[in-house]
Design a protein around this nucleic acid. Sequence first.
DNA 1: CACAGAATTTAAAACGTTTTCGATGCATCG
DNA 2: CGATGCATCGAAAACGTTTTAAATTCTGTG
Lengths: 350, 350
Amino acid sequence: MSRIEKPADSETARNPLRAGKPTLKTIAELTGFAITTVSRALGNAPQISESTRRRVHEVAAEIGYLPDRAAQRLKTGRTNVISVLLDPHEEILGFGTSIMHGLARALQATPYHLIVTPNFLDGSNVDAVNYIIRNGMADGLIFSRTEPFDPRVRLLLENGFPFVTHGRTEFSTPHAFVDYDNFAFAYEATKRLIVKGRRKVTIILPPKRLTFCQHMLHGFMTAVREAGVAYEIPEALDLDSPADMIRDYMRRRSTEPDAPDGYTCPGEVSALATITGMSDNGLSLGVEYDIVAKQTSRLLSQIQPKVETIYEDLKAAGEGMGSLLLQRIAGEPVEGLTILQSPQFSFPTP
Amino acid sequence: MSRIEKPADSETARNPLRAGKPTLKTIAELTGFAITTVSRALGNAPQISESTRRRVHEVAAEIGYLPDRAAQRLKTGRTNVISVLLDPHEEILGFGTSIMHGLARALQATPYHLIVTPNFLDGSNVDAVNYIIRNGMADGLIFSRTEPFDPRVRLLLENGFPFVTHGRTEFSTPHAFVDYDNFAFAYEATKRLIVKGRRKVTIILPPKRLTFCQHMLHGFMTAVREAGVAYEIPEALDLDSPADMIRDYMRRRSTEPDAPDGYTCPGEVSALATITGMSDNGLSLGVEYDIVAKQTSRLLSQIQPKVETIYEDLKAAGEGMGSLLLQRIAGEPVEGLTILQSPQFSFPTP
DNA sequence: CACAGAATTTAAAACGTTTTCGATGCATCG
DNA sequence: CGATGCATCGAAAACGTTTTAAATTCTGTG
């Protein structure tokens, strides 16, 4: 039972915060076992006897041992990091943070950390993806707003790198994704407008290059055809258009002949902009026209309850992406690893 | 010039992604220098001759060498990580992501990564802070919504851990912060209402426990006293109140006698909610009443240009916090490390 | 031309893990 | 009683970097 062998205080002096941080060696000395044994015991390896396993865990808990992430990462090559590619378009209405909260919840009891890699470069963030793959900066990747043949997805598939997207693609090779059923949303929303007796419907679509634009269009058109109702699609506008542009468009269009009276708005901002544009013209919601909107927060219906809304639960989406990614990293086959969220008719429980 | 010495392919087979990753050793072999020399040359150590320094950098760039973060972290004890504490209240209107984009921009050319630690626990996230300090999970910390005697700040000060807050405190020990001049905002906003001829002003304040609530109140009261105008402060409401609560309050209050006609709204949501509440009662903005609001995005003025707005540049705030934190980590004295953002009268350039 | 001293380079240890390969003890079996 | 198998445990190497201490080369000088 030798106690003190070397001075061993130089480190303490240099970096006070790292000072007494317990390591495997600490536990080894305290229990009398070898470092190997301690490591195995904490890893619940099979060849360790139940009694020493318990003893080691006990001591570890007592002194508040936590494995050093850097050492683990260096040794094993696994980073225990999941990277989120932040899109500049997600700045509005808490898209980014909702998903992140969900992700964080999924990773809560795991050793994984969440690191955000914002996109500084051009439209798509292939460079960031490439960087992460090449330099092993993460064990898995998460991003959103996919295109049918998204170059990021292609790159990741080619390299066999684990990832989950928010949104589908049209690659023949399957991959893990979480997506909202935007077909169902557009279909349902448009049908509601028709049921309300609206004679001509319209929809603000996402940018054409994004996969879910097609889904929405399809849902919208299906409802239109089933009912045989009139419709139009504003070509000059999309969901990413600035709110004032949408507002001005709506104001102008509603003065022209043959204006729509039923609006499907796939986002809070577009709905608010539409309402303002119309009311600038003296038209009021629920009287001359109706809106069914997609909500990701409570904001819109709290402010303007006359808007009919259908919810998308982004926190659940994040949580789903996290859990799918964990399964991918664990090596599970990609086959079942997809989630299609159904439109919700009441606000999701946080 | 020996070429192949050992098989050296076992790793390649096991982890294909880590395969040919160049290390210091690779460069050492390629240049003929020792690993030490290569390390020093890349670190631009003074004792290395200019010629070898250039040669090493050249080869490093050529083979795309990047230092292994795990090894650096293990050796030096520095994590090269900056942690952001995500607050659940920041879910709305891109607060979180704007700040994060700013932060990321400040850290762009540095080795620092941004990792988000969401707050799952009770109101304040002291536990998360404690965890990060104790286990050396980051080199610096960033968080927002400070209280006058914020327990997180206290903990960090006690441990000498580098951090920057968004918002001030009232500790006697100084610390780095970025804050918006909410006194100036409230003062200016309220004065504008008075200049417009409004007879009775009011303001929706932040939760009382937050430092900037006092600043706003002070700015508001200063303007009120200077002009000798009537005022009231809704006690049942704060900035964190759900939008429908604010809307309902405004609707009710505006029917009662002696209702205010000038509103200072320190947020987009509260402004929208106020507008809706008032218009539910047939009162219209710019006619029976006015609003001056704080905007952090373009949304509000795009939707409703009749709202007078004053901007807060959150991306710049993030960028400021990042650069202050870097200086703190580099050991600079805390004295000058504070930024007080002035209210902006036009939308900040992204 | 030897030599101090500066300038440059290097070998080796260390950071805290995981993992490979053995070692040890002990009961069982021929 | 020696050999065998099994259940546990341990010594040492390795991951890629930084750093300490020492070795080597180069310079000018006496």
